[in-house]
Simulated scan of single mutants.
Amino acid sequence: MSATDTIKAKLAAQFAPAFLDVIDESNKHFGHAGWREGGETHFRVRIATRHFDGMSRVAQHRAVMDVLDAELKDKVHALAIEVLPADGPWE
């Protein structure tokens, strides 16, 4: 399973998001620290879920990072997290 698929599966299972987009941005980081041939090192996660209602932005990001702990320790060098409103709109 690719890192992209693993990230999607883990976040979907944990948070049941109304919207989830996992974008591999590794190509934008060619030659930077953590970049590897084949990509899957730099990601952007866009997620909307009621699970985050009432949580601070820091707590939301920690929750995502906790779920992806193994990936962050192994293959993923960088992760940008965008928490969107649970009821949309999403672009």
Rank of each mutant, 00 (worst) to 15 (best):
V45A: 10
M65F: 11
S56L: 08
W35Q: 08
F52Q: 02
V58A: 14
A86Q: 09
A3S: 12
F52D: 00
S56M: 08
E40I: 06
L11I: 09
P17R: 01
A33G: 13
G34K: 03
S56D: 03
G39N: 03
M65K: 15
D74R: 09
F30Q: 13
D69I: 06
V83S: 05
A12L: 11
A86W: 04
Q60C: 14
A86R: 08
D69F: 11
L79N: 08
G88I: 09
K28V: 10
A16H: 15
L68Q: 04
S56F: 06
A59I: 02
V64A: 05
S2V: 04
H42A: 04
G88Q: 07
M65A: 13
R36H: 12
T41Y: 03
E40V: 06
W35L: 02
A33D: 15
A48V: 06
S2L: 05
P17L: 10
F43G: 01
P89V: 09
T6E: 11
V76F: 00
A16Y: 09
S2A: 07
A86F: 06
I47G: 00
T6Q: 13
S56N: 08
G31E: 10
K73E: 15
A13I: 09
Q14W: 00
K8L: 13
D87H: 10
H51Q: 10
D5K: 13
V45P: 00
S56E: 07
A18Y: 01
E40K: 02
L84R: 11
H77Y: 10
T41V: 04
V58E: 09
P89H: 05
E25Y: 01
H77C: 04
R46A: 12
Q60H: 08
P85F: 12
K8D: 12
A63Q: 05
P89Q: 08
E40C: 05
E91K: 11
